[in-house]
Write a protein that binds this DNA or RNA. Structure first.
Lengths: 224, 224
DNA sequence: AGGTTCCTGACAATAAGCTGAAAATATAAT
DNA sequence: ATTATATTTTCAGCTTATTGTCAGGAACCT
């Protein structure tokens, strides 16, 4: 998915960019409206992440312009807590969702996923990995038709693998996915959760790559 | 199908009108209550799309008037995110469905299709979840044939689940559904209402997914 | 062997959820 | 306007599942 990020705050922009890139999407990051318009005129984007307070004007005007042009590209607004009226205007102007700063990156991921699913006209997608069937909106996993209950953390871990099937994920990557920035983990938590997932989903679903990390989904040397 | 669109926002109105027309329905678009009443008095409509904030009054009053007159014409309310209390009133006043702005056009199409299907043969659309029978127009719920009375908030909560059967909804999603923008809730209100719904509808209707949210409507032909 | 790295059962601390009941609002009735 | 009634919100105590950590052992590599 190709995403345009319009955000003038340096630090935040970087973090978001990294996060999105990590999830395998292509990001273009611009810091003002005029650049955003330039990008939009040359490239098709599947999603727009739009800050409202920008150096050369309000994001709302950009949004209105886009909608007026008949573009249906989904838009998620990023806004500070004290800009409620702006937010409402933004929604009225045709945004699809909003996020109040500061937000968790996981929250951002979830919204992006939700918007893109809706946009793709596929509101109830399922993922199949081996004998597992995973319903992403219902958060239901069945193994050979039998429903398996996962705890929040277990699901979060599984999610990391679902998002990048067949990719080798290091323990620190997985930690980043599970835990908020800064809240460091001291013990072998990831190993423990890998173990718990294996117990619930079946031994063969998760492959250990010694010294490197873990991988799910494709057992053989990989085709896509 | 003949549809009356009551919406005073120029841009949005145009978009909706186009969309509906694209789908082969006849649309009349008016921008205030008085014009709406004029149209309703001369023409039969199969569906009413009703914005709540209108220049010459609240759409709710119009809706009440219609229902009082015994008209069963299905009504879908279009409402902004900061008018949720209005929305609850609207549902109490006899709306069939609502859409929170901004909405996907595909969402709109789906609702329209759903409403027209519901009304295709039977004048009184009902939803069945487990042993519950839910009358969408009258907001009456029967459990094993016994009528259950819900308060506005209880209904609003239930509604969130009805709209997305089987979907896992987080507490914050449910809060978003129940409460207006900015009016933050900082107690365990959702839990309390979940508890009340369970008491009224039966223990098994709502499933807790610890750490993630709640889910309704999976009592079906289950695998164990 | 000896040194890693990983697995997994057990456990205490914690966070999440449930629910009765009081306090605060809103709504209706007189 | 006052009173009565119903609903909504908050609070606090309780119950229980989840979490992070540890420790001993297994698997792996050179």
């Amino acid at each position: 998915m190709r995403i345009l990020l319009v955000e003038d705050t340096e630090g935040l922009g970087e973090v978001i960019q990294d996060q999105i890139a990590d999830e395998g999407h292509a990001v273009d990051w611009v810091k003002c409206i005029s650049n955003a318009e330039a990008s939009l005129s040359t490239t098709h984007y599947d999603l727009l992440l739009l800050d409202l307070m920008l150096p050369d004007g309000s994001g709302i005007d950009l949004l209105k312009k886009i909608r007026k042009a008949g573009e249906a590209t989904p838009v998620i607004i990023l806004t500070a807590r004290d800009q409620i009226s702006d937010r409402i205007n933004g929604l009225n102007a045709g945004a699809d969702d909003y996020l109040v700063k500061p937000f968790d990156l996981s929250e951002l991921s979830a919204r992006i996923a939700a918007v893109s699913r809706r946009y793709a006209g596929n509101p109830n997608p399922k993922v199949y990995i081996g004998t597992l069937e995973i319903d992403l909106t219902k958060h239901i996993i069945s193994r050979d038709g039998v429903v398996v209950n996962l705890t929040a953390r277990e699901w979060a871990l599984l999610e990391a693998f679902i998002q990048r099937p067949g990719t080798l994920l290091s323990k620190s990557q997985l930690e980043d996915h599970l835990y908020a920035f800064g809240s460091e983990i001291e013990s072998n938590t990831i190993e423990v959760y890998i173990s718990r997932l294996r117990k619930k989903l079946g031994k063969d679903q998760l492959e250990t790559v010694r010294g490197m990390g873990y991988r799910m989904g494709l057992s053989g040397p990989g085709s896509t």
